[in-house]
Design a binder for these strands. Structure first.
Lengths: 248, 248
DNA sequence: AGTCGCTTGTGAAGACACGCACAAAGTTGC
DNA sequence: GCAACTTTGTGCGTGTCTTCACAAGCGACT
């Protein structure tokens, strides 16, 4: 949301192929699904198939893909390996991004061991905490440092992404240290709004909020179900036809 | 829109269905911040203050709040305790929602101990896994059951929300069991698109995707910053006809 | 060759979200 | 009681996202 306030040297604006934010999120999903399909030995996939597998409208999928170029073959579909490569390039995954994780408590510990990060090109290479009982131990072979070592360690290990999994009151301090160390992208699990300079990108994941959104829907459903006859619902599309069977 | 303020308890076609999805997500954020303010002893808060604290545009905040009614006092702001109560009601938090967590591995274990759930009205009251080493142990005082016990335990403990933190290949099976047990809201951490009947609401949280979105931004930033990257892959024809161009 | 069926890519329209700007409604001070 | 000030609630213009619908392109088949 924050446009670089005074980014200054912008120079010649070479066709800002600005991919919509919503599309970027879905491209990442397509990427993973393509990876799975490739592992299963498939060679091509149509937009309808890929859309069904990722739960997206086919037209939306094609438009998403069109933002990164025209790599489909009409009448056939998309060549999986080619599309995979193009997607990785567009998402900036051609070179690894080292991740630092601050806060090795309950959630942080799990994230440190979470295979989904390292397995997808985001190796967690630094861990930090303030708890003396945690500083010094190894998790998944990585030493936990004190947060005061953030600047030094981040520079040394070329950290580009920071993940904050501290308690709420410690998050801003951790964030400041990361920013000071040159980290420009932060994934924040703490339930606070981080104050950062304009050039730093923050994404927030709030688990409690996710549950509350669900609770809202369950309450609303209960309300309409009890108040009236169950009407034909028009909730989010999800034309899940043939949703039966095929379990396990 | 002069809706009679006192006549809320009638139950006749409460038009809550009109709350935009995006607003619901923010309402949950306001709710938490209001809780913090209440703890600090504040009694009223203005839209500007609350907006600044939650990182939202003040007008947007007021519009969000207007969807649940007019509970502000012009010239003063919002009475925190009152607004808190109204928000909880609107989000369906007036009665607790018992949560079942399937998959007590790395992430699931952390979620089971995550204070943000129970602390906000979503007590995790059931845990499930398939691993014989995990079934039978207690986490935070809760016994881990085998997933085959899901129907029985969910009915017994009045589970309304299910959280899936299993590996990808086990997620659909876990989902089916939950749905079969009457769970209508599912929070899914597994990187798969769950197939569910239309009346079930699924929210997906994909941690790897979050990082990839960040990686995209870091890559693009790097691209624009170093404006003269040797673009070897300009091969794509880019028939981007009339793409608006630089409307500065 | 020629035709037919299938799939992509995209213009256009509709739906949704955002944020400005201002009237309405309250409070404070005299 | 009245005027000045503060803050809410919202109508509306603007921009973004989603979805439809269809022409263009590709391969297969006759």
């Amino acid at each position: 949301m924050p446009v670089p306030a005074e980014a200054g040297s912008e120079g010649t604006t070479v066709k800002q192929r600005s991919i919509p934010e919503a599309s970027v999120a879905r491209l990442a999903v397509y990427l993973r699904m393509l990876g799975e399909l490739a592992e299963q030995g498939a060679e091509t996939v149509s937009s309808d198939e890929l859309a069904a597998a990722t739960g997206v409208n086919p037209a939306k999928l094609r438009k998403d893909l069109s933002y990164i170029g025209s790599y489909g073959i009409r009448g056939v579909g998309y060549e999986i390996s080619s599309l995979l490569h193009q997607l990785e390039r567009a998402l900036g995954l051609n070179h690894r991004q080292a991740v630092a994780l601050v806060g090795v408590g309950n959630l942080g510990h799990a994230l440190a061991g979470y295979g989904g990060f390292g397995g997808r090109g985001f190796p967690v290479t630094a861990l930090f905490d303030v708890d003396p009982d945690l500083v010094g131990i190894h998790i998944n072979g990585i030493l936990v440092d004190h947060i005061r070592a953030i600047p030094e360690v981040c520079a040394e290990r070329a950290i580009t992404i920071g993940v904050i999994a501290t308690p709420a009151q410690a998050a801003q301090g951790a964030c400041d240290l990361l920013v000071e160390s040159g980290v420009r992208c932060i994934l924040n699990f703490a339930p606070v709004v981080l104050q950062v300079p304009g050039e730093v990108e923050v994404r927030k994941v709030d688990l409690a909020v996710e549950l509350q959104i669900l609770a809202f829907h369950v309450a609303r459903r209960h309300l309409t179900a009890t108040a009236d006859v169950v009407t034909e619902q028009m909730v989010n599309g999800h034309a899940v036809n043939g949703s039966g069977g095929a379990h396990s």
